[in-house]
Each structure stands twice: as C-alpha cells, then as structure tokens.
Design a protein around this nucleic acid. Structure first.
Length: 714
DNA sequence: CGGATGTTGGT
DNA sequence: CCAACATCC
C-alpha cells in the first residue's frame, strides 16, 4: 500500500522541504502522508487550511466546528512534542490558492496529503495536483481513510459493487490485507517556519461559545483521546455489542464516529484491533462476542461503503441513486420540517430523539433510523432536508455516511429499505426503549406517564393522562399525522411517482435524445429558506406539577444531558439557552456559488427547476407557500449538468439521468448498472474518477506509489 | 405436522 | 430484494 512508498521516493532527501496538508486526518499515528514526509529526513511543514466556503451549503455546523477546533489544537500540541514543529494554519476562501502561496513562500518542493472522497475534495484535489505540477512541485497522496481504495474493490468482472453486502464480503476476502497501521513518526523537524505565519482560525462566534463549553465536558477531541476511546470500547462494550446495540441509550455504542470523521482515529487501526479481539473470542468459543465483532466491523464497512459510493457516484449526497425516486412527490412543508426538528411530532420516540440531537449533537444509530424514517415516510419530506439538518447538528456529521444513511432510509438504494414500509414509532419505541426511560429523559412532560402508554399517549385514558400531568395538544402534541393517513398518502405518492417515471420514459422513447430527460420535469430538491426556529414564541405550557424544572422554552429544554452524551458521570445541568440561539438553522448557508473559474459548468434547464411538482395537497397535509430557489451549484445539483472537463475532461462529469424504467437502475445510468455505462459514456471523467487511469494519462513529475495502489497522481 | 402466508430485519 | 422466523390453517 502507500506505506511501501518509502522505498520509492522519499528516502535520503535531506534538505527537501515537504508540506503535509492535513484535512480530515488529524492524527500523527497511522498517517501515511506525515510518515512519508518524515521519512524524507528533510523539513516537514504541517499545514491546515480552513476554507469552509468551499463546502458551500455543507459549511460545518456548530458542534462539528467546535470539534474541529479542539482537534486542531490537539494536533498542534502533538506536532510540537514530536520536535521542532507545529501546525501552520491558514484562513482562506480557496485552499488550493493558500497552499500554492505557502509552497512558494517557504521553498517547499513537495506536497503530501491523504485522500478524501467527497465530491468537493475530489475536484479540488485534482485541481491542486494540476496546479502544483505546473509549479514543479512533487505531489504525493495516500490512503489513510479506508481499508481499500474504492478502485481496488471490484467484482469478478471488474465492475464496482452497487450493493453493500457483496461489497463488504469482497473487502473481507481481498487477497491482501488492509495496510497495517503506522506508528507515529519518531521526530518531525520543520526548520525555520518564520516564512509560514499562522492565521488565527475562528470556529465559533460569541453566541456559540456557551453551548460549546458544554460539549467540552462531554467529549475530548484529539487523536490520543480517540485512542483512549477505542481502547475503552474494545475492552468494554464491544463484547456485548451484539445484544446491546439495540438499546436507545448509547452506553453500548463505540462513540468513535466523531473521531473517525475527522480522521483522529484510523479506521484501519480500528479494523485491525477489532479483528484481534474477534480472533481471541473466536478461539474461546464465545459466539456472541465473535458476532459482536462482526456486527461492529460491519459498521466500519458501512463507513467504507459510504466513501465508495461517493467516489463512484459523486452526487449521492443530493440525488437518489435509484432513478425513479427522482419522481417522488415529496411534501414540501416547512412547518412539518420545523415541528420535526423541534421534537413536537406527537410520537414520543421521535420527539425524544430530536431533542437529544438538538441538545447534545448526538444520537444513537437506531434512533437516527427512527427519526429519519419518520421524516421520510410519515412526513414525506425530502430526505435532503433531513440530511442537511443532521449535517448541521450532529457532532459526527459526515457527508458520505449521512448520504448513505438517508438514501438507505428513503429507498433510493438498490439494497435499501422500501419506501412503502412505514415503521411504526410506537412499536419501535417498545423495541428500543421498552421501559420508556429514554423518552422520559428527553420528554419531561411525559415523565410520569406509565410505561404502558409512554410510546402512545394518544391512546391513554383521560384519567391516566390527567394523573401524569399530560394534556395532549397542550403540553404535549397530538400526533402530527396519523399513520393511516401517512400510509394512504404514501401509496398515492408512489403511484404518482411511477406514472411520472413512465411518462418520462415514454417521452424519452419518443425521440428525445438523452439530456433533456427528467431534469426538465423534476426540479432538484432545495433547502427551505431561512427558517426561523421561533421556539421562543411558542413555549409549551408546562403545568407546575410536571417533573420539569421550570425553564425558559420548556419544550425545547432537556433536563440533563446524561449517559447518551458522555461516558463521564458528570451530570450536566443543561441550561441550553445558548444553544437555542445558536442552534444550527438548517437552511442557512445554502448559497453555493458555482466557481466557474474552476470548472466549466454545463447547465441545462436550470430554469425549469421552478416547477413545483413537489407540492401536494392530500389528506391532512397543509402546505404553506413553497419558495423554489435554485440554491445549489449546478455542478452538483442538476441532473443534466455536468462537471465537464476543460482540457479533455479532467474534471468529473455527471451524466444525464437515464430514461430507464428499471427500478434497479441507478439514476444516472442506463440499463444495468450505473458506473459502468456512465463511465463508458464519459471516459474522460473515468480518468478522474478512477485514479489509476489518471496517473497514466498525466505524466510529469508524478511518481507511482506502488503497483498495488494506483496512485492519485501522486 | 407442513406448507402457505405474513412479518421483520437487514443497509 | 430476500432470508429467517412466526403464524395459521
């Protein structure tokens, strides 16, 4: 793997200066780019560029920015300990530009970094390599994030997998093991950094500071803390993971995901250590423990798969991979959306989850499925909205993982759940929270309700409600939508979806060449505009006898942040007043100006996006005015738009949507499976999307890491 | 008891 | 979609 590159380029270059560009690999252990730079025996300049504007609508949320800031401090400390070094930080609107300036100013001749797989990074990193090559800088890049690079994992025909199970089976039976984790470099020397002043990076504003202070009591970012968390999990909850993982209270989960997102923890290290445990337990004949490892490793596999999907389908964070889902008439209802975010749907398990998410930035995996499934199937809001809210609020917000999760939930993956099976929050409540403890923790207004009714208060006798201090419709809402009504509307919507899909296919067959296609019929899903939470204006009327301490904005308050947020026993009294103000507002930062200087955009039919076929008035759905806005960059939001290459296509091109009526068909493709026909029709983008070909098609100054890992022009 | 039929879980 | 499991005659 990339590790073996030590034999190929670096050794013995005393005197060279190498910039190591840190991104989501904020660790010194098992960091191939850093290790390779350290092995040159020259000077190493560790660099971090804060350029969130590049992320457009996916500007990191408050909690995510907080984590990042802590992690960078930790990394800086580690680098200083490793010798005469430190983390050089830059604030820029354009990371490539900042890096070029840095390299020029300090006489560096090499730039090393580790791969990322989100669409923005794929394009940016490619541009970076081009520009660095033009400067005569040697660029090398490495795999630090995955067990195997996406292009390594293919089926017997050499095609990409489109379903998780076979993908993961292949990963587990590859002819070579994932690279073994690397130790931290013994020493890093940076020489004179006077030419590399650091910018002060600002990650929070005044309104966020108070809420962030609470986070610090529950979490400890940083790669060494990641390591501790991993050890604690391996020696603790892992062995019972197979039985405990279903409990909504997350004492049994690993709590590693934020570390993994920022690369403070190496997925390969996790993989190796869990496998060791599995071997031990397997030899002891402990079947349940062995199963626990298998299940936990599968969640590592899902993370792996999310990168794989993102690499092969760069629009998977906003467009359904199954073509017909593009025709689903989502309910465009910002009121529903708001009620869901506030945890006021009237379904206790859903509401408890949403309030935990808001208060803590954390949610057990099961509850994520519950709230997102409710969002998509009962409320029938577009999953992209929910994903954006997760992005803004989750401590471990991760574009690739969340895209996979939401697509799975909304039935837009070949192996996902069907859209038409509504999960019953009442039944799930008794499954994941059988004694109602989770609901009581997060919904104090229901705290005195007996377990028998805790997950369906609307059925409870009046006397029970009265004794519990619950007034439905007053201090706790009635269900926002009945499941029967939701089901009826869902069936109608699905049949409409199929009709639209068939009509689109017919139109295609009638001689329209591909290109117009459904992009003219189905506008991209947009985020609603500037929603205000308005929670202050409608505080729940909590009667004095309810087990809540009187607080401002009671219905959004949480009595305490307890175990689900942190392992530390400190009970944090959650006066989350600040968090109300600073709570990420989902639709913020939706402006994403296409950078035309970076890539030429083929932009067809954008104007047609104004068609509002997402609006439906059925059943109990009241729909407010819907403002359509074309807020996403055409390069990533328009089905028909592309990332077209400048010179012979070195920028990814997203194909026009297919006219296929096959439910198994990925949206971007014709007949059988997406990536294949997609790449066949866009060989130039294959060159970008498949790094191995890229390295062959472009030459000058780039070395090949080794034969197994076709390098990323590196 | 056994096969048809339904339900659940899984990514 | 599909396998495992339950339930029903």
């Amino acid at each position: 793997m990339s590790v073996s590159s030590s034999s190929m380029g670096g050794g013995g270059d005393a005197g060279v200066r190498t910039v190591v560009w840190f991104r989501r690999d904020l660790r010194v252990e098992d960091n191939p780019a850093l290790a390779a730079a350290a092995r040159t025996d020259g000077e190493v300049v560790p660099e971090y560029v804060w350029a969130p504007e590049e992320d457009g609508p996916y500007y990191p949320g408050r909690v995510s920015r907080w984590w990042l800031s802590q992690s960078l401090k930790h990394l800086d400390t580690s680098l200083r300990r490793l010798g005469d070094s430190k983390l050089v930080t830059r604030r820029s609107a354009d990371a490539v530009d900042a890096l070029i300036k840095l390299v020029r100013n300090n006489g560096a001749t090499q730039l090393f970094f580790n791969h990322l797989y989100d669409p923005i990074s794929l394009v940016r990193d490619h541009r970076l390599k081009e520009m660095m090559a033009a400067e005569g800088i040697i660029v090398r890049s490495f795999n630090a994030d995955l067990l195997y690079e996406p292009w390594e994992v293919v089926d017997d025909e050499g095609q990409s997998f489109t379903m998780f199970a076979p993908f993961w089976n292949r990963c587990l039976s590859m002819p070579y093991d994932p690279a073994a984790p690397l130790l931290p470099p013994k020493r890093i020397s940076s020489g004179d950094l006077s030419m590399c002043p650091s910018d002060d990076l600002i990650f929070e504003d005044d309104s966020e500071r108070g809420s962030n202070a609470l986070l610090a009591r529950a979490w400890s970012p940083g790669w060494q803390n990641a390591d501790k968390a991993l050890t604690a999990f391996l020696n603790g909850p892992l062995i019972h993971y197979s039985v405990n993982r279903k409990k909504a209270d997350s004492a049994s989960t690993s709590l590693l995901s934020p570390y993994l997102h920022f690369g403070e923890l190496s997925a390969r290290k996790v993989f190796h250590l869990v496998r060791m445990k599995q071997l031990v337990w397997s030899n002891e004949g402990n079947r349940a423990a062995e199963e626990s490892c298998t299940l936990f490793l599968r969640s590592i596999g899902l993370r792996e798969y999310s990168r794989y999907l993102s690499f092969n389908h760069p629009c998977s964070h906003e467009k359904p991979l199954l073509a017909h889902l593009r025709f689903f008439p989502w309910v465009i209802n910002e009121c529903y959306f708001k009620i869901w975010r506030q945890g006021r749907t009237g379904y206790p398990l859903v509401d408890a989850g949403m309030r935990e998410l808001w208060a803590t930035g954390w949610l057990h995996d099961r509850i994520r499925v519950v709230v997102s499934s409710f969002f998509v199937k009962v409320l029938q809001l577009p999953w992209q909205w929910g994903m954006k809210y997760f992005w803004d609020t989750l401590l471990d917000a991760d574009l690739e993982s969340d895209a996979l999760g939401w697509q799975y939930i909304s039935g837009s993956l070949p192996d996902g759940r069907e859209l038409d099976r509504i999960d019953n929050p009442q039944l799930e409540g008794y499954k994941f929270d059988p004694h109602g403890e989770y609901v009581r923790r997060w919904l104090p207004e229901l705290a005195r309700l007996p377990t028998e009714w805790i997950h369906h208060p609307w059925d409870a006798p009046a006397s029970v409600l009265q004794a519990a201090g619950v007034e439905l419709g007053s201090n706790y809402p009635l269900p926002i939508v009945g499941l029967d009504a939701a089901n009826a509307r869902l069936q109608e919507a699905l049949s409409e979806m199929w009709q639209l899909e068939a009509a689109s296919r017919a139109a295609m067959d009638n001689g329209m060449e591909e290109g117009l296609g459904d992009s003219s019929e189905v506008p991209p899903i947009e985020f609603p505009r500037e929603l205000q939470m308005e929670v202050d204006r409608e505080p729940a009327r909590v009667t004095a006898n309810v087990l809540t301490t009187a607080r401002r904005r009671e219905d959004q308050m949480v009595p305490t942040m307890t175990s689900s947020l942190h392992r530390a026993e400190t009970e944090i009294s959650a006066d989350l007043g600040n968090s109300v103000d600073s709570r990420a507002e989902v639709p913020s930062h939706v402006h994403f100006e296409p950078r035309t200087e970076r890539e030429e955009i083929v932009h067809t039919n954008a104007g047609n996006a104004a068609r509002t076929n997402g609006i439906h008035e059925h059943n109990n759905f009241q729909l407010p005015q819907h403002r359509m806005r074309n807020v996403l960059a055409p390069s990533v939001s328009e089905a028909s738009s592309g990332w077209t290459g400048r010179e012979g296509g070195v920028v990814p091109v997203w194909s026009p949507p297919a006219a296929s009526g096959h439910s198994e068909t990925f949206a971007s493709d014709e007949a059988d499976i997406s990536s294949r026909s997609y790449l066949d029709r866009h060989p130039q983008s294959h060159r970008l999307m498949n790094w191995s070909q890229l390295s062959q098609s472009l030459t000058t100054g780039w070395e090949v890491e080794n034969s197994v890992q076709p390098n990323l022009i590196g």
